[in-house]
Every structure is written in structure tokens, then in C-alpha cells.
Write a protein that binds this DNA or RNA. Structure first.
Lengths: 211, 211, 211, 211
DNA sequence: GATGAATGAGTATTCATTCAT
DNA sequence: TATGAATGAATACTCATTCAT
């Protein structure tokens, strides 16, 4: 391993260290109430160091959202590669993946919507924004591919596959968000998983062609 | 009309005046970048006056979300009152109502999710929070009632009506949010209404029992 | 006196209050080492209030320099108005005025050079910069007018009056600055006034035509 | 050449390398907006290395001003050595030298005044300050010597030679500074050299005794 | 000597909120 | 009621300087 490479690896480790700390603090306090000093303390670093790895607070925040997109993309791509699966089986696998995405980081979906507010996006660097765009499109594209197969097979309704992918993703995140906010409004109930299951079931029936 | 009542009415008029101004400014700049002075200027009032009618910035913001809930509630209740309509016709009317909710205030849906972040909710007065809770539950309940009729009639799947209502609302807001963020990510496309139509169509097919 | 006018006057009073405090602190600590909080404390105001009257630190600083230009302009204009004076008498009066400019605010000349560094000028508001430009030009123009009379009379050398005014002003501020820095380097001597007198004498002989 | 000496020479070379880089960056950005990292990059060194050769930023800056004093001193001493020249010829040579000083480093004159602000001088090491003092005095002394000859010869006015030297230097730097700031204030004119020529001409006539 | 990652003190600026009028 | 001048706490970000390697 060359010196160059070792340094690169070390740098990535620091980024991860900061992101882990940031995730903890952002999750607990939300974006506005979290200070860079909070994060620095949590990461056992000085505030200045954070800026060696992230341009500013927004960009640190956004990089957290990027991780879930990366995870999603990997999972969905993986599903697509399983050529032996039927569209129905792939859809099942996709739903399974969505549960995992949720478990991977339940709070970060809420962050993603914060991220996607124009207020935030405008402060990101061109390169990070580009990365987010690209990953979003790829992920939605990969989901759409699953639907396309089903549509081509005639077992799913003849809708535009990307539109279906958008709806699938919207429904997923809409449910997650809505259940999260319900949890605040009436903290004693936690229906998320079952609501999600019902939503998926309903979605599946919705896209299926009547035989 | 007594003096008391006239005063009350006058006060309500001012609240509305402020809310109209606030909506304009929040819609344009988002929550964080909007200052109370911006709103005061837009309302042609002084900053101090705003605090005579709203406890703080968060509460002013939240009251805007309350309006859309009120509007939604009125519309859905109205649908429910039409006893001559079949469940299917009511569902159509409900969808129609959702389009109107969106048209009533496209950006405020995004605000609603901001509202529901714990960060914000914690700063609201007990009474306002109570009002939001109640109205949310009533609205969801009214939507659930429509589904319940269909389920009881056997034309909709035997799911818990409230779960269906939640999914319906989640899907609606999920699509609105996702399309809004896509507009920023890939600004050249604006599919909202058609995506929404597809989503509703799919939802309808999803909940319908196979004959 | 109308309310409008009284407010205006009150506002001007506050500006002066801040400028007086700022001058004291800047003189003592220099631009960089002076904090806005220092000034606020000296003015017995809060830091935020400073920003109600001055856009930023640089602009507060620049406004101090503007005062000396204003003073200079008034004095020189006054000299020009004395139509009964000969060019020589006017030149004497001008020199007198320069001594007073110096006494008015000995340290602020140094500030003026700080001001005129491009570093600083770039941060000023368009309007303030405009004001500085205009006042500079007017002042130099007024000085030039004195020389022009002498030139037209044939008692001063046939140089461009504005060039003479520039040199006069340059020599004045050059001497002030140089003596100020010498005071730091060898704090035991204070030749300023006599050096200035010699400089003026020399200048006068320099511009005078041989009879 | 011993090892000691070679090391010394190497060290001096590095100092020069850094100063050349520093001059470029300071000239472009001014003192405050220049960072040590900027200079390090320009010098193709690391920030830490700069501190091996200069105590701190101020001292690096000051050492640049020292160079021009050194240059000035060399030139003026050289003029003095030319015993065959008349005072008038020496004065001409001095003026020539000043043009060269200006050409040597037009912006550094402005820096010199920054240097001489008490704000900066207070942070310099005793030894550097001493060096600056000494060189200033020597340079002024050398200039004064030229004037003294003329005075002794009776062709220049009977003023204190050091006072004349101070005025000469003040006028020179005053004109340079003023023209530099005018360039910012009214960027369309660039009279420097001609103003300087007029100033020198005027100075010469000013110091000359009427025959 | 040279490096450059890490430091952390230092501060200009903002803006929700208050309160004397 | 309404005002709007004043407040002052709060914080993102910078950068000269250090020091382990």
C-alpha cells in the first residue's frame, strides 16, 4: 500500500468519524439546533477540523443523506442483477430492501426531506449536488427497471416505469415521514412497519394487471 | 353585535392579514431564511405587532399548516355528508379534494413536514399542538370513514380503514414532496399532476376487491 | 419641528455617538485589533445596535475618514469664498487650514490611508464610496482653484492646478504619516509641526515664479 | 567554504524564496486577506516551513519593507560616493534613484506605511525593529548628506538637512500613496510619474536659494 | 529540516424578541 | 393596540500557529 493510498484511507476514516458523530447529534437535535461545536465534541475533534473535511454545515448534513442513497442504490442494483428472479420476486426483494433502508437509518429519511428543501440545496457545492442528482436518478432508474420488466411481461399495468418508481419511492418516504410525525403527535402508537406492509401490498395490487 | 364580538372579529382579521403575509414570505424563502421583519414588512405592520397575535415564529408558521388541515377537513367532511354518493363516487370526490388542497397551497405541504419535525413541535404552545392533533385525527378519521363504507360494502379490501387513510394521505404528500424536490434536482420536468393521477389510479385499483 | 425631523435628528445623534466611540477605540487599538464589541461597550450600546447605523465594521471605519474630508472641504471652500484675499494670502489660509485639519484629528489621517487601501475600499457600499470620491474630488478641486488664481496671476508656475493640489495634499499627508511613524521608531522626538512648516515654506517657494 | 557557511547561504536562499512569494501574494491581496497558506502555496512549501524562517506573519511582512529600505540605502550611498558630482547633480541622481525605488516595487511603499502603523510594529521582534530603525535613519541620513552639501555650498536654503530629507521622502511616498488611492477612486487616470516629476521639480525650486 | 493535519481562540454579524413610548 | 429601536445571545467559520512524524 503506497503512502498516497494510506493517506487517502486515513482521510476517509476521518470523514466517517465525523459523519458518525454528526448523525448522532443531528438525529437528536435536528439541523438547526445542532451546532458545529456539538458535532466536534461528539467526534472528539476541534471545530476547525470539521471544515477540513466538509465545506460547511449544510454539506456535512447533506453527505449523511447521500449515504442512504448509496445504500439504496447498492441494494436495488443487486436486486436487478438477480436474473433468475421473476418481476414479482424482484418486487418482493425490492420491498425487502426498502425495509432495510429504513432500518439502516430511520431518522435519515426525515433528513432527506430537509435536504431536498430548496433552502438547503442552494448552499451545496456543485459537485455534491451533482452526486446527489446522479445517485437519485440511478436509484429511481434501477427501481424503474424492475417495473419495466413486469410491464413488458404484461403482468403490470402499462404505465411509465419511472412514474411507477417515483410513486413507489414517494409512497415509501411519505409513509415513513407521516408515521414519524404521528409518533410525535401520539407517541404511544407505532404502526410504521404494518402500515408500510399494507402500503406495499396495496401498491402491488394496484400495479398488477387484472388477469 | 356586541363590542366584545366586534373586537374578536377585528383580531381575527389581523391574524389572517399576518398569516397571508407570512405564507407569501415563507413560501418564497423557506422557514429559516424568513425573518419576522420580512413578514412584518409584507403585512405592513411592525415586528412587535406580530407578537401580539402569535407567540413566536414557530407558532406563526404552524398556524399556516393548521389552515390546510382545516381546509382538508372541511372538504372531506363535506364529501362524507353526501349520502347519495357511492363509496366509489366518494373516493373520486376525495381525490378531487386532494387536488384542490394542493392548489390551495402547493408549498404548504412541504411546510407541514417541517412542522411535524420534532424540532418544531417542541416549541409550540400546548393549545396549538392540541388543535393540530385533533384536526389531524379528525381529517384522517373522515377519510377513513369513506374507506370504511367501501370495505363494509365489500368493494374495498378488508384493511383497517385508518391504515388506508394514512396510506392515502402519505402517498399524496409523498408524491407532492418528491415531485417538489425533483423540480430542484432536475428542473426541466414537472410531472406532478400526472404522477398524482397515476398514484391515485393505482391506489384505487390497489384497494379495490377483485370482483 | 415635525416628528419626522425629530427622528432624523435623533438618528444622526446616535450615529455621532457611535462614531465618537469608534474613533476612540480605533485610535487606540487600530482597525484589526478593535472589535465591534469594544466599540459597542465604549458607546454604551449593544453590538446589534451598531449595525442599525453602519452596514459593517469597514463602513463604520470609513465614515470616520469621511468626516475629515468634510472638515477639509468646508475649510477650503471657505478660503475660496474670501474674494478679497490675494492668492498668496489664500495659500497662507490654506496652510492654516491644514494645520487645523491635523489638529482636528491627528490619527485619522493614518486611518485615511488605511481607508484608501484597495483592501478596504472594496468592502464599502457603493453610496459611501461615491460620497468619498465626490468629497475628495471637490476638496482637491477647491485647493486647485487657489493655485489656479496664482497661476493665472502669473505669480505661480504654469503647472496644472490639480497636479499642484495633488502634490500639496500628498506632501501634507506624507509628512503627517512619516512623522507619525518616526514617532514610533524614535518616540522621543516630535518634529511634526516644524517639519510641516518647512515643507509648506519649501512648497511655496517651489511654486512661486521667479520675479 | 565551510559547512557552516554553506548552510547559512542555503538558509538565506530559502528566506528569499519565501519573500518573493510573499511579495507577490501581499501585493495582490493586501495584508489582511493574505493567508500564510497562500504564501506557502506560492512558495511551493508547507505552511509550517514558513515559520522556520520567519517568526510570524507580521515579521514576514515587515521583512519585505526592509528590502526596499536596503535598496534605497544602497542607491543613496552610491550617489554620495560619487565625489565628482555637484550637489545639483547628486540631487538629480537621487531623484533618479527614487524612480527606481518605485519601479523596484511599486506596491511595497504602501506596505511600508502599513508597516509603520503602531498596530504592526508592536508585534515585531526587537532585532527586526532595530534593523528597520537603523536602516531608516541611515537612509534618511544619506539623503540629508546630499542636501547638507548644497546648503554648505550656499545653493540650497539654510534648513536642517534632515528635515529636508524627511520632506523629500515624505513627499515621494505621499505622492505614491495618493496616486495609488486615486487609481482606485478614479481608475481612469494614471498620472503618477508626471506628478512625481512635477513634485520633484517643485521641490528642487523650493530648496534652491535665489541666486 | 520539512511537513501538513490539527488546533481552537477569536469575532463579525444576525435576528427573534422585548418594552418604553 | 401598535410601534420599532434596541437588545444580546448565539454560532458558523477562519486562519495563524503548532508539533508529531
Amino acid at each position: 500500500m503506497g503512502i498516497q493510498e494510506r493517506k487517502e484511507r486515513e482521510k476517509e476514516r476521518r470523514r466517517q468519524q465525523i459523519m458518525v458523530a454528526a448523525k448522532r447529534v443531528f438525529s437528536e437535535k435536528g439541523f438547526n439546533k445542532t451546532t458545529m461545536e456539538d458535532i466536534a465534541k461528539e467526534a472528539e475533534l476541534s471545530p476547525g477540523t470539521l471544515y477540513l473535511y466538509f465545506k460547511n454545515k449544510e454539506e456535512l448534513y447533506a453527505s449523511l443523506s447521500l449515504r442512504i442513497l448509496q445504500y439504496l442504490h447498492i441494494r436495488v442494483t443487486h436486486v436487478n442483477k438477480e436474473t433468475t428472479l421473476s418481476p414479482d420476486q424482484k418486487l418482493s426483494a425490492l420491498m425487502e430492501a426498502m425495509y432495510d433502508v429504513y432500518d439502516f437509518d430511520p431518522l435519515i429519511i426525515i433528513n432527506m426531506f430537509h435536504l431536498q428543501s430548496s433552502e438547503t440545496l442552494k448552499n451545496l457545492s456543485e459537485s455534491l449536488l451533482e452526486e446527489i442528482k446522479e445517485l437519485s436518478q440511478k436509484s429511481i432508474g434501477a427501481i424503474a427497471k424492475i417495473f419495466k420488466e413486469g410491464i413488458d411481461n404484461g403482468i403490470y399495468v402499462a404505465q411509465h416505469p419511472v412514474a411507477l418508481a417515483d410513486i413507489f419511492w414517494s409512497m415509501f418516504s411519505g409513509v415513513v415521514l407521516w408515521e414519524a410525525s404521528k409518533k410525535i403527535i401520539s407517541p404511544d402508537k407505532d404502526y410504521l412497519k404494518s402500515t408500510l406492509a399494507t402500503a406495499f401490498e396495496l401498491f402491488e395490487r394496484g400495479i398488477r394487471n387484472p388477469d
